[in-house]
Design a protein around this nucleic acid. Structure first.
Lengths: 346, 346
DNA sequence: GGCCGGTGAGTAACCAGTTTCTAACATCGC
DNA sequence: GCGATGTTAGAAACTGGTTACTCACCGGCC
């Protein structure tokens, strides 16, 4: 069994071989071109004040020797990594995947690399990973639904430049891009009560999730609602497993924490022979790509997922350039009525 | 409009401020503790041969000054980055997402960071990104369905340690983890012909994809098959849009390039009022998590997606430790018969 | 008591770049 | 023709760590 299989954290140890197979260094290029290291550096970085003939000689030597500047040495000398980091709780969640994609594209466009870390939903791990990632990058985008406000505030300056997504932390000096969960829930409930529903079941998200807390609180704040809260989770399986409980509680509509549990419920209800939306209506949250393709198509709350990644990059870029990161944004979600909701059975 | 929005590749320029807000360096810690830099280094790296009292003094000083060793300096001195890189063509594809997840977890366990780059399906970009990523990491996992064999062979030594996933390149000295596409297709076809189907439609993947080419070739190699090839793609939308063509061509079964196009077809057929599997059977490929939750549940070919990420890490780890990376593996996929396939209409 | 071996810590070289400073040289104006 | 000015390229300092080498000191043994 190898160290990797045992899950050990082998520390970084000194280089094994004498050196990576005679990779050319700036000194070698300088020597070959008969110039100083400074001149090679200037040529490689496109400084104009170099004699064209010299520059050509340097370029020829670099090509000849297959010279590639050492990224590590540049990092040290420049004090910049050319990298940004993203820390998310769970890479299997489409919500974070879309942030990842948006950020990856935007960073790629700007010629920056992207470091990705997954905290696996552990709030303590989240913070440690974030620090670790930040030390290897020039900036950080953090999606941290679990870590407490205080913890994040305490670490704020160590993490800056920092952009928060799907989360707002009062008193933390970092721009945040979040979703107005209460508004989304309000739209869902208005839609359902408009259809005559009075008894709603909320299929909860993972306990401890900030998003789940907000959505649940929003539901509870709505007057004259007969609300049953069922334990759920964030995955298909959780929704699928909850179908029985949904039927049992007698609610006419299920409000899913997200689209995945909602899809799971959809499948579970179908297996139980419960017509949707004939007998039970189902709603999701997020509008993941798949929501459009369930049977029936899922009524859900659309949030600008790709937008979040792109905007996160913009904010981070500003901060890294010493500019202001701008204000917090709470995106207003939009209800998408599809086939999974219908009139309450009379 | 900012540089980021215009998509410019702003070069890395020298550090702006005098230095990152007085971050403590090893020299400062050494001075504070009244020891040499070497001793601080030894303490930070857990060398045993340090007087416990001195070590305590160093640790106290480090704590006092909030000292964190510079990652950049360590990279340079050690010649190691503590990072591995993953390059994939498309982060929205669940196939690559699962490799990402597997690799992310495994690398995290081993205390290594993960650099992710997305080539956006451009074969030339793929290669450039791979080189760039490799320069900032100790090893590379590459999923490159587009780049040619020759190109990869030419760059092989510059990319090593390298592990290929979903791809095999003859003559390239790098372990590869791939899927036996032909075997998967054979199982699908055996299943369908066993149900009495003779006329099959293949809903193709993106042109230029190595996986698509293999699957198509496998289909064409099967004798006595009435095969219609329809242009498709890799996303829901492509499958959805092809539903009409599927009905039109009169095939009794659709073999989808992957689960997403198959799901799209499923929805499209439902909208057209075509019963599945009553009138048309549908199969997918990959067994993404969602396949279990379509209506009807998708008959598909299961491939060990998570396994690929984990194994890729193991191979890479071995290579990075100077060991043998092991042999190429072709995973044998397994047919999962669910509800979307049935007897051919008579 | 002197010699030897082992241990612990400091000195200095090294990783591979970037950048400031400086000196040489060319150009221009007077 | 000479001083002022501007440009170019090199020398050297600097980024912040790690580590080979060295040396002082201590204890044990003869």
């Amino acid at each position: 069994m190898s160290a990797a299989e045992r899950g050990e954290q082998a520390p970084l140890t000194g280089r094994r071989g004498p050196r990576p197979a005679g990779q050319a260094t700036i000194s070698r290029v300088a020597e070959a071109a008969g110039v100083s290291r400074a001149t090679v550096s200037r040529v490689m970085n496109g400084s104009t004040s170099v004699n064209p003939e010299l520059a050509a000689r340097v370029r020829a030597a670099a090509l000849e020797l297959d010279y590639e500047p050492s990224a590590a040495a540049r990092r040290l000398a420049l004090g910049l990594t050319g990298t940004v980091a993203l820390v998310v709780p769970d890479l299997s969640n489409p919500l974070f995947q879309s942030v990842l994609r948006g950020l990856s594209r935007a960073a790629g466009q700007a010629g920056r690399q992207l470091l990705v870390a997954e905290s696996d939903e552990d709030p303590e791990e989240e913070v440690i990973l974030a620090l670790e990632a930040r030390r290897n990058a020039d900036g950080l985008v953090l999606a941290s639904p679990r870590a407490t406000d205080e913890r994040l505030r305490a670490l704020g300056d160590r993490l800056a430049p920092l952009v928060l997504v799907y989360r707002e932390v009062p008193g933390l000096d970092a721009p945040s891009l979040s979703i107005d969960n209460a508004a989304g829930i309000a739209q869902v409930v208005t839609h359902l009560t408009g259809l005559g529903h009075r008894h709603l079941a909320y299929l909860a998200g993972p306990p401890g999730s900030a998003g789940n807390a907000e959505r649940l609180a929003a539901l509870r704040a709505i007057p004259d609602l007969d609300l049953t809260v069922l334990p759920g989770g964030s995955m298909f399986e959780h929704g699928h497993a909850a179908a029985g409980a949904v039927v049992e509680c007698g609610a006419g509509a299920v409000v899913g924490f997200n689209d995945m549990v909602a899809s799971g419920v959809l499948t579970g209800l179908r297996e139980l022979g419960v017509p949707v939306p004939g007998r039970v209506s189902v709603t999701g949250f997020d509008d993941i790509p798949f929501a459009r393709y369930t049977t029936p198509p899922l009524t859900t709350v659309s949030i600008p997922q790709g937008e979040l990644g792109r905007r996160a990059w913009e904010r981070l870029w500003s901060l890294m350039n010493g500019e202001d990161g701008g204000y917090n944004v709470r995106y207003q979600p939009r209800l998408l009525v599809r086939g999974s909701t219908g009139p309450a059975p009379s």
